[in-house]
Nucleic acid binder design. Structure first.
Lengths: 200, 200
DNA sequence: TGATTACATGTCCCTAGGTACATGTCCTTT
DNA sequence: AAAGGACATGTACCTAGGGACATGTAATCA
């Protein structure tokens, strides 16, 4: 995980492990029940669309690789050129292993962070607009999750496993989004006072 | 921003804009005052180290590119082979423009999300360990920011501009981390009840 | 029945980012 | 004065991911 960061080389073994996020993302969704590439792309889009774009080319490619590795297998060659995959036992074992395994990589993308980091460089009006949008964004995310939970409850996603715990997951997501929205709201109420350094 | 996501092509112009995060990150830090590549790598590491690894090869490369574009210039060819850069006026204008500009790309990395998304697949023990670590992680982040704020107050980072608003920025970061830690704590107290689907 | 549109899967290329490894410089210690 | 290490900057490569573009299939509708 992230070598090459300051200072002389520390003794470490090449990891190769970790990452492969998409691979495990697909595996996890398939653990809920069989689905086709298109289904998966849609599910990703619905649940994570705002924070993670599902790119179908990658999804189809990864599905084939997963099948080659025997972690998933063809469930049905439905009509309309729609191939559904089903997770295999070794697939379930693999994702369990991955979930249990070591550390989470908390690396984030820089771009969203920078706006917050550079509050002090922004014109008050821009900052205001920015924070208002953040509030909207995260509130919207909370709603999106709630909506998904409802659809799930109505059984719209077919033969999912007993979803008691899935509910908790989604409630957690809703709460997280709300926390973020609250934060943005706080920030917008505590904007730095005028007198920020201008271009001089 | 994220094309290639489901459905037929929507009419959009190639962006080219956006991204370039590192570029603007460096520009923003240089707006606080002159610094060398090494300084910048250290600053990144100290403030964002836990969530964004500063990679010096990229930093040095980007600095040269910024200099070529006239957004920064050499401040002093200090001893010890230490070249400090200073932001130019067009540099300040550029980062202001970028900050004011349109939408933030909220794309995140998948890996950290997946663990939360797949709560329901985890063995209770693993989930417990995982959430405990999350709490530690975000609490640690909050402390890291506070520490940075203190050092900043003691003027350890040289000739920063009047830092009134910078303080607010850091307080915001601390609060954000705390919100995340709170969330993780909540989640660990509301773990899904036993009976999760086993391998069958 | 021909056109249009949503569904479904794919190829290909490019860039940002991650990492190993090379190198030079100055200070401290023996 | 030789040696070890923190400081400082770089080269080179490789992979994951982002996005343009191609293609085929079924349903709808004018």
């Amino acid at each position: 995980m992230s070598r090459c960061v300051l200072g002389p080389a520390r003794a470490v073994g090449t990891d190769k492990e970790a990452a492969m996020s998409l691979r495990y993302g697909l595996l996890g969704l398939l653990a809920e029940g069989p689905a086709s590439g298109y289904d998966l792309a849609r599910r990703f889009q619905e649940v994570l669309g705002r924070i993670w774009p599902a790119q179908h080319p990658k999804i189809y490619a990864e599905l084939r690789r997963l099948a080659d590795d025997g972690l998933i297998e063809v469930d049905s060659e439905g009509p309309r050129r729609r191939t559904a995959y089903r997770i295999t036992e070794s697939g379930v074992a693999e994702i369990r292993r991955w979930l249990a395994e070591g550390d989470v990589d908390h690396t984030m993308r820089l771009q969203p962070l920078l706006r917050s980091l550079f509050f002090w460089l922004m014109e008050p009006d821009d900052l205001d607009r920015h924070l208002r949008r953040e509030v909207e964004f995260y509130s919207g995310m909370a709603e999106q999750y709630s909506a998904y939970a409802e659809r799930k409850d109505r059984g719209e996603f077919g033969t999912a496993p007993p979803v008691q715990s899935m509910r908790v997951t989604i409630e957690a997501a809703v709460r997280l989004s709300q926390a973020l929205a609250d934060w943005a709201r706080w920030a917008s109420e505590h904007q730095p006072p005028a007198g920020h350094p201008s271009t001089e």
